[in-house]
Design a protein around this nucleic acid. Structure first.
Lengths: 168, 168
DNA sequence: TATTGTTATACTCTATAACTATA
DNA sequence: TATAGTTATAGAGTATAACAATA
C-alpha cells in the first residue's frame, strides 16, 4: 500500500480562542490532516466536547458514564475488571469509583469468594440515573449519526476497532 | 437513520495491568463498543501509544510533533495561529513552545508588523530533527496502514474530519 | 475595545512505585 | 509469589481568570 500524503485543510475543532478572527486557511499543515493520530485527537476532542455538553445537565463525564454502564450490566463486577474493559489502570480506577460512590450512584461491597476484591453495584439512585443517561446517549449519538451516517458509523467503528490492535 | 446498537466485544487496548490474567471476555459492555466517543478514546490511546513508542528515541510527543510540523511549513507563524490550527488554546501553547525552545529546536522572535506577536522559527537543530521525524512518521503511519489498509484509512480520515464539525 | 502573549491555577487523565491484605 | 485495592506522586492535556503590552 502506498504512503502518499495529499494535503487537505482542516478546520479548527472549536473556537480555540474567544476572539481570534484571523485567517488561518492559508496555513500549511503538511501531512497532519492525513495523519490518523492527529485527526483522532481532533475528532475525540470534538465528540467528547459534545458529550460533556449533552451530559452537562447531570454532570457526568465520559469516563464516569462508561464505568456506570459496565457496572449496571455486570452487577458485582470487580474494580480491576472494570479497568480492564475500559483500559483504565487499576490505580486510576480508584478515584473514578470514589467520585461515583461519593455521589451515591455506586456502592462497593466485600466479596465472599475473594476477600481482596471489591464488588461494585449501582445504588437505586444510580439505576434511576441510568434511565436519564440512556436518553442523553441517544441524543448524543444522534448528532454523531447526522454527521457521518449509519454506513459511515459502521465503517468508522470497524476501523477504530482494528486500530486498538496496533499495540500488544 | 436507525440507532440500533448491536453488541460487540472489545479487547483491552493494552495490557492494562502487569499481571491480570483474568477472563474479561464474558463482561457485558452494553452499547459502549458501538459508541463512537468510547471507541475514539480506545483508538487514540492505542495510536498515541504507538506514536510515543516510535518517537521515543528522540523524546518527542504528539503535540510537540504537530507544533514543529506547522512551524517548519510556516516560518514566522505566530503562536496563536499555531494554536488555532492545532486546536490548542493560546494559554496552553506557551509551555508547549517553551519546551521546544528550551531544547533549542524553535526560536521566538519579535515581529515588526505587530509588536504584540511572537514569530516562530525552527533552529538549525530543529530543521535537522525534522528529517529524522519524517522517517519516524512514515514508520508509524506504516503500522496504521497495515491495520486498516489504504482504503480504510481514507474512509477513516473522511469520517474523523466530519466529526470535527459536531461542535461549532 | 480587542488581541497577543503571559502567569497563575485547577481539574481530568494517565503513569510509576510502593504499601496492605489477601490468594 | 502473585493479585486486588489503595496511597502518594508526577506529568501531560485542557480549562478559566486576569494582567501587560500593543493594536
Amino acid at each position: 500500500m502506498p504512503l502518499n500524503n495529499q494535503i487537505k485543510p482542516v478546520n479548527p475543532v472549536v473556537e480555540v480562542d474567544e476572539g481570534a478572527a484571523n485567517d488561518t486557511s492559508a496555513i500549511d499543515m503538511g501531512p497532519l490532516p492525513n495523519q490518523v493520530g492527529f485527526m483522532l485527537r481532533l475528532a475525540q476532542l470534538a465528540v467528547f466536547q459534545d458529550f460533556i455538553q449533552v451530559y452537562g445537565t447531570v454532570d457526568i463525564r465520559p469516563a464516569q458514564h462508561s464505568a456506570l454502564t459496565v457496572i449496571e450490566r455486570n452487577p458485582g463486577i470487580r474494580q480491576c475488571d472494570v479497568g480492564a474493559v475500559l483500559s483504565i489502570k487499576r490505580t486510576n480506577i480508584v478515584p473514578l469509583i470514589d467520585s461515583l460512590e461519593k455521589r451515591g450512584l455506586v456502592k462497593r461491597r466485600q466479596t465472599a469468594a475473594d476477600r481482596r476484591a471489591r464488588s461494585l453495584f449501582l445504588t437505586d439512585k444510580g439505576r434511576k440515573l441510568m434511565g436519564i443517561l440512556d436518553q442523553l446517549r441517544l441524543q448524543h449519538e444522534r448528532r454523531v449519526l447526522d454527521l457521518i451516517g449509519e454506513k459511515g458509523r459502521e465503517r468508522l467503528l470497524e476501523a477504530l476497532s482494528r486500530l486498538t490492535g496496533i499495540v500488544d
